[in-house]
């Protein structure tokens, strides 16, 4: 059993060792590559002087602020469209016209309207998060057991109560899946905005390291960003399993 568990680890460990060995044997001099040992050292250094932690805080702040705003808008629209077929059909063309705009294309608009900083990044992240949440929560609301809707009608619940007491709880597992997917997107968009133009957070950090010709630090940032992405996904997957059980994971296919 332990061997089976170790099997998936053999490839990455082997690759790292081989790379380390190769880098040492050839006395690697490069602007883009560094042996794993130096990457680890650079990461330790950046952790020790808190620079990477501050950058992480900035990136995560923009990620979560954008995620919160985007989720709120996406959820509100998704529930409204899910309940009202009329509204959904009337808005179809508008939604289909705006949705395919790649979030990153808004970057220059946000830049001239809001300047560098958190605000423009948050706006772009929010825009990117709206769509998956909207579409998945709309589908979730539509698939709420019709019996439950009939129950709420028989009970003569007012619309607001119907949403709060019946629809949201019933659709919550699938809405959470949408939220988890959006969180991943939010992080990716935040880092991308920082790499492209915004001088803050992890994206700016990795660009600076590259421009300073510090491949060890650059790759340390890369590893760190990967770890953050992995941890975020892991955290939300565990939360999802805790909150809604394994069944919710089956709604994962996008």
């Amino acid at each position: 059993m332990t061997l089976d568990r170790a099997k998936p680890l053999m490839l990455p460990i082997g690759a790292l060792l081989a790379f380390e060995g190769w880098a040492r044997a050839t006395h690697l001099q490069s602007d883009s590559l560094a042996p794993p040992s130096e990457i680890v050292a650079a990461l330790a250094g950046a952790l020790a002087d808190h620079s990477i932690l501050a950058a992480t805080r900035d990136t995560l702040f923009a990620t979560f602020a954008g995620l919160a705003i985007g989720s709120f808008i996406g959820l509100a629209l998704g529930i409204a469209f899910g309940i009202s077929d009329t509204l959904d059909r009337l808005m179809e063309v508008t939604v289909e016209a705006v949705r395919p705009v790649p979030s990153i294309a808004l970057l220059p608009i946000a830049l001239i309207a809001l300047g560098f900083g958190y605000r423009m990044e948050i706006v772009i992240v929010a825009f990117a998060c709206i769509w998956p949440i909207l579409i998945l929560s709309r589908a979730a609301v539509r698939s709420v057991e019709p019996r439950l809707m009939e129950v709420s009608r028989v009970l003569r619940l007012p619309a607001a109560q119907r949403v709060l007491k019946i629809i949201i709880p019933a659709a919550l597992p699938r809405i959470f899946v949408a939220f988890r997917l959006s969180a991943g997107i939010a992080l990716i968009v935040a880092v991308t905005v920082e790499i492209a133009i915004n001088p803050l957070g992890l994206g700016a950090g990795i660009m600076l390291a590259q421009q300073a010709l510090r491949p060890d630090l650059m790759l340390a940032y890369l590893v760190w960003i990967g770890a953050i992405g992995y941890a975020l996904n892991m955290l939300l997957t565990v939360a999802q399993r805790r909150l809604f059980g394994r069944a919710a994971l089956s709604g994962d296919s996008l």
Binding site: S32, T192, I195, L202, G203, I206, M207, M218, L222, I225
Partner: peptide
Amino acid sequence: PVSAIIPV
């Protein structure tokens, strides 16, 4: 986040 490999 794949964009992180851009600097590399």
